[in-house]
Nucleic acid binder design. Structure first.
Lengths: 342, 342
DNA sequence: GGCGATAGGTTATGCGTATTAACAGTAATA
DNA sequence: TATTACTGTTAATACGCATAACCTATCGCC
């Protein structure tokens, strides 16, 4: 734990004052003329020899900025169960941060419960922060909104005592578009598997679904995720649905496999549409009709927005990225054979 | 950018001095008795009302420590091409850091070339740092060794002007063990595909391989990775090898598939052993005989070692984790039929 | 020679916190 | 009554850096 080299040490070695060392280091074009080349070289020589680097902490004390972005995740970021969700986000954040010259402070949420405001809030070491996660603590969000600490949520968030700055994905029209396509294929009796509330992204899907269902028959809804495939398929078939929307990819995989096992044709007898992908799931060979969620682009945009807020104190922005349907092979017309059989 | 709440503000509101506020906050058992409950409550009330949190930067100025660990990667950490390599490491680091109450500072290497010592070295914001990556810059490593900044390398590293603290994997005996098993199955003519030098982890595999090959015939070596499967298979067969060691999983996959296409039996005609897994590869259905590399455990151990060094100025440690062979299904005796045919 | 201007620095100060030495005030003791 | 001991609080200081304010020669110019 030998002491670090400081500007004072450099100053002593170069026979100048600490202030001069600082001036040499921060040689902006304006102040550059102040220090003659000879002195500057002498100081720089000592700096090179000692390998001195300015302590960013002290720097921050003075300047107020650090070129560090905090990344707060409400769930651990790396465990493989979440990998499909977080990895593209982190990838986008990392690359954008690198472009912009920022480092990332990953907040581990030290201890059991992940909270932004704890005893040891090291968050403020960063100039601003990105918040990721499925579920947000509403109280903390409100507190952030109230406070003056720049942050941007990745994913749309409802107001929390004020508008929340975010970059999200516009699920509503994207989901509605998928419903429209289904109906163009003649589907009239449609089922929905997945929660209809909770996180905004989930609620938005449900909202878009409902909007476009006007005039069609919602014959069954199975809230929640992770239900047994048998239960889902039985319920859906009994209700006479020809098309099912799944909010979670993992659920769709199981039901699709079971359907095929039972001799049903997908999409001949049953069309399947997938709206999201959170849980790590076995890879299915089937290309589901679904949504392409631009997670990486979302994270990149959020990072840029945060930097805008940090650097120029920009006002709260809210940005929604469009979300393209993925054609896939699980949506099609009801096959006439089975249609008649029925 | 409204001004932050500081201890001075708290002090003013609570009618005490800034020092008192600090004492209340850092109420160690010793100093706790000094402040009577009545005053303490008054201060705490104001703190609660204002939502004050101590500025970690200023705190660090005084204490010198931050409870932050830097993570430096020589390559971007998240791009999916590297995901198989970095993700388990980051997972281990994150969980260990969380247990120990540290946050992580991900150094993006701002700019083009990733260097530890640049103009804007924000590394020192951390109390210490973990270094990941396939290839290390030897000069920088030597500089780190010489310096006083605590760091631990993930993966064994050769001395760089002094012993490098690391947690690595003991490839030498593990690789040797695999060779031994191959020879027990009667393999005498063996080939090696992959580099024999470069990163320590690669060199170690080669070393363990050579050690255990004494008395056997090394009939072919193909340095490098990413060669066409045809070239590899042809060379190996022409040399009359009955067993091939691959240093890279991705290479083995291609050759194994080609071998089967050509009607060869694996392991009947050719045994295949895989020593490492760096590149992202298509998943193969084949369970290769290989090594289980405890990447997550390695990262966890490295994190703990770093914290030891940070907190108690512990001496340089070097730790090698054992590495277990994975049975797999690509190593077996030479099938007598083909053996005779040949 | 007296004046201001300029080059080439230096001193002083503050950022927000932790910590220690010091200082009043009161109670206990001699 | 004078001294000591303790209690509760504060002023002072340091951490490393950036920067504003301030010196001191030296030079140019009338």
């Amino acid at each position: 734990m030998s002491k670090r080299v400081t500007q004072r040490d450099i100053a002593r070695l170069a026979q100048v004052s600490q202030a001069t060392v600082s001036l040499v280091l921060n040689a902006t074009d304006a102040a550059a003329g102040r220090i003659p080349a000879e002195t500057r070289e002498r100081v720089n020589k000592v700096i090179r020899e000692t390998g001195y680097v300015a302590d960013p902490v002290a720097r921050r004390m003075v300047k107020g900025l650090n070129r560090i972005l905090g990344v707060f995740t409400y769930e651990p970021a790396f465990p493989s169960a979440q990998a499909d969700f977080f990895t593209p986000l982190l990838l986008g954040i990392e690359s954008a941060a690198q472009e912009l010259g920022y480092d990332l402070l990953l907040l581990t949420g030290a201890g059991e419960s992940r909270k932004i405001f704890g005893d040891n809030v090291r968050l403020r070491l960063a100039d601003g922060c990105l918040i990721l996660g499925r579920r947000f603590d509403p109280d903390e969000l409100a507190r952030l909104v109230r406070g003056d600490f720049p942050f941007v949520a990745v994913g749309r968030r409802d107001d929390a005592g004020g508008p929340v700055p975010y970059v999200g994905v516009d699920y509503v029209p994207a989901t509605a578009e998928l419903v429209r396509r289904a109906r163009q294929f003649g589907h009239q009796r449609i089922a929905y598997v997945g929660p209809d509330s909770g996180a905004e992204s989930i609620a938005d899907r449900w909202l878009g679904f409902q909007q476009a269902m006007v005039g069609a028959d919602l014959v069954a809804t199975l809230p929640g995720v992770g239900r047994p495939a048998e239960e889902v398929l039985d319920t859906v078939r009994r209700a006479g649905a020809s098309c099912v929307f799944f909010s979670e990819y993992a659920d769709a995989i199981g039901v699709e496999r079971l359907a095929r096992e039972r001799g049903l044709s997908v999409p001949g007898d049953l069309s399947i549409i997938v709206l999201g992908h959170h849980l790590r799931a076995e890879q299915s060979a089937t290309a589901f009709t679904s949504l392409f969620i631009p997670r990486e682009a979302m994270a990149r945009a959020a990072t840029h927005m945060l930097v805008r807020r940090v650097e120029s104190d920009a006002p709260v922005e809210q940005q929604l990225l469009p979300c393209e349907p993925v054609e896939g092979e699980t949506l099609g017309p009801i096959s006439s054979v089975n249609h008649q059989a029925k």
